[in-house]
Design a protein around this nucleic acid. Structure first.
Lengths: 197, 197
DNA sequence: GACCGACTTGGACGTTTGCCCAAAACCATA
DNA sequence: TATGGTTTTGGGCAAACGTCCAAGTCGGTC
């Protein structure tokens, strides 16, 4: 068989995915063109439509691939933390590595945005976020979190995404200074209420 | 003087701003063209560059105008709430009116994203967000919030933005169920820690 | 009436876009 | 050396883009 040809195609495809992910962060979702991706990947312009049905298809595949790895890894590492309070502290430290204007942060934000208009991407991203949320919730439960673990996880993930957003506006924002409120939220003692007016 | 002409120009300018704001939400920041704005505003294509130096200039003016009104109003209404705990409860109720896919939500998210690549927009948006944060912080302080009011306000605003983001992915997300963790964060009793390893 | 400045019109420009396709290049097999 | 399937090439297409501009409209002053 033409095994070598297939191999060559696979690496080209990977190069296209990598180039696309980088360019989404650099130029924005709508600022990426087939020619840019091809040039970055070092191939002819036409090759994009050989490996992918359309430009959105390529961008969706590229971004979800990176995002899945990122968010899954973050959620996984967080789950390794011994208790919620040191967990959020670790999380803020980890988050400090993202300035809000680095490629990784920008890619995530671009995805959220594009997801509003691309149903396929929205479903994929929703799946990723829901999975992260569920894993954090079960981690909170295992560690004896007193309140509604699902709710706390939802707010926590939302706060993380929001902080990444805000860091883009204000790179000087000191994330480690925000440990107090987050620790208060994930407390393990019984100091909690269910509902109220 | 040519008062009537100037008046006509002013209303045309307003119409362009309104059309641009709506189109940013509908088509995305990068999906708005001068011709689309002109058509929506009911004027000839060339008029855009008579009133605005460039397309980004128009989009920046349009989006910051709407965002300033929105965020300021939200922060102002929140500050009217009697105490932090009912305040966050009110906030979640208010936020529930935004599905994450409505024009207002989308405009805000589009701005955050475009701000990463447009320094002028970034500075303007940063100003708006910082102002909202400061007003919420002083409100927390006035109401006897036990912890670091600045930090709590920062997390609160980040969580709000993050929740709007997540609602775009999952319109079924019940925001009112998230009151617990947020209430725990804004508590007024002395149950707080300063820093920790 | 003529005149003037502000505003609007609609088409023109050069560029870039996503997508397509006939032809060439490549590699393992026969 | 031929054959066949896979991958790559580079140009072509119609459409849309931002910006510009000469001509035209409009209301108010001489």
């Amino acid at each position: 068989m033409a095994e070598a040809s297939a191999d060559r195609g696979r690496t080209t495809r990977q190069r296209l995915l990598g180039a696309a992910a980088a360019l989404i962060a650099e130029a924005g979702w709508g600022g990426v063109s087939t020619r840019m991706v091809a040039e970055r990947a070092g191939v002819a312009p036409g090759v994009v439509h050989y490996h992918f049905a359309s430009l959105p298809d390529l961008l969706i595949a590229a971004s979800t691939g990176v995002a899945r790895a990122m968010l899954e890894e973050l959620a996984g590492r967080l789950a390794e933390q011994p208790d919620p309070e040191t967990g959020v502290e670790w999380l803020l430290g980890e988050l400090s590595r993202y300035t809000g204007t680095d490629p990784a942060s920008l890619l995530i934000v671009e995805m959220y945005l594009a997801a509003a208009r691309l149903p396929e991407l929205r479903d994929l991203l929703h799946e990723i976020v829901a999975d992260s949320r569920a894993r954090i919730a079960s981690w909170l439960r295992d560690r004896g979190h007193a309140g509604d673990a699902e709710a706390t996880a939802a707010v926590l993930v939302a706060a993380v995404d929001g902080l990444v957003l805000h860091r883009g506006l204000d790179p000087g924002l000191d994330l480690t200074a925000l440990a107090g409120p987050l620790r208060a939220m994930v407390r393990t003692d019984g100091h909690e209420e269910g509902s109220g007016t």
